[in-house]
């Protein structure tokens, strides 16, 4: 067992040929400790799916390295569950046959009861074919397959997108129970921050192919402050992420360096405020564990 679930070092992925190539991900470095529930957040096209596919070993990096559960993504595959965004399943199989396939593909570590529970929660007829299921029902079967595998690391790309609010709450509960009982590391992407706020304790914010924020959500929030000060105030030496002047006041989101003037303090931002501030200001300096000396400065 290793205490690190995923470690990326200068990870990069380029699509297309030289000359017309685009970088889906570049210079991506972070460490995700084991046992965390991590939200991978960012706008559409930011590189979230590429990052998850690299960690799942479905695609090879163009540069840098990614280590999963202490080994290469390929070698870790039996211990990793992956739910892709398009939920690839065999349309001609029934639900029961799909779960039987899961049992066959994972000899010795298939948790039939767990898989069954996830399917049963949706009142699905096991004899129904995958092709006749709705998007949300397919998500449920894909999740049952991934959980039945009893993975140490569960990677999910937009798992909640197709689900109705009731199913979303129920399945999020199932995932949290999995984390509580087995210490499973869970990584899930979404572009809806509010959806993940209560369930996740770790954040990876991706913007334009780069890591903008990485770390424990509590620490990230405490490492930032909302500031409200007279318009001409000099906010240095604090790192300003975003600032706006209205009339005689300037309101800003900063990473305090040293102590913040007491009369400026406007409290800790919410997760959504923090994420939006970084995404609105692509030039704001990133904050990842590699640069975390800023916290102690």
């Amino acid at each position: 067992m290793t205490d690190t679930a995923i470690e990326a070092d200068a990870l990069a992925k380029r699509f297309g040929r030289l000359g017309r190539a685009t970088w889906a991900l570049r210079d991506c470095s972070f460490r995700l400790p084991a046992g965390r529930v991590c939200a991978v957040v960012g706008p559409n096209g930011a590189g979230k799916s590429t990052l998850l596919a690299l960690a799942a070993g479905l695609t090879a990096p163009t540069g840098g390295t990614v280590t999963v559960l202490g080994t290469t993504p390929g070698a870790a595959r039996a211990r990793v569950g992956f739910v892709a965004q398009d939920k690839p399943l065999y349309p001609q199989l029934s639900i029961a046959e799909t779960l039987r396939m899961g049992a066959d593909l994972n000899p010795g570590h298939w948790d039939a009861a767990a898989a069954q529970r996830v399917v049963a929660g949706g009142d699905l007829d096991p004899k129904k074919r995958i092709r006749s299921l709705s998007g949300g029902q397919r998500t449920r079967v894909a999740l049952a397959l991934a959980l039945g595998k009893r993975p140490e690391l569960l990677l999910m790309d937009e798992p909640m997108a197709d689900l109705d609010p009731l199913a979303r709450h129920e399945l999020m509960g199932v995932l949290m129970a999995q984390a509580a009982e087995h210490g499973t590391t869970i990584v899930m992407s979404s572009h809806v921050v509010a959806e993940l706020e209560d369930s996740c304790d770790h954040l990876l914010l991706i913007g334009e192919g780069r890591v903008r924020l990485a770390g424990e959500i509590d620490e990230l929030l405490e490492g930032h402050a909302r500031v409200s000060a007279p318009a001409q105030s000099d906010l240095s030496p604090h790192t300003v992420i975003e600032s706006r002047t209205t009339g005689r006041q300037v309101s800003a989101l900063v990473r305090p360096v040293g102590t913040l003037r007491a009369d400026w303090q406007g409290g800790t931002p919410s997760l959504e405020e923090l994420v939006l501030s970084y995404l609105r200001n692509p030039e704001a300096p990133a904050l990842t564990p590699a640069k975390s000396e800023e916290f102690s400065a």
Binding site: V37, G173, V174, M176, A179, A180, D198, D201
Partner: peptide, 17 residues
Amino acid sequence: PTAREVVEATAINPNTV
């Protein structure tokens, strides 16, 4: 209630409990 029971019903993070 155990952390597992609470998070299964509320979908919050186990560490919060």
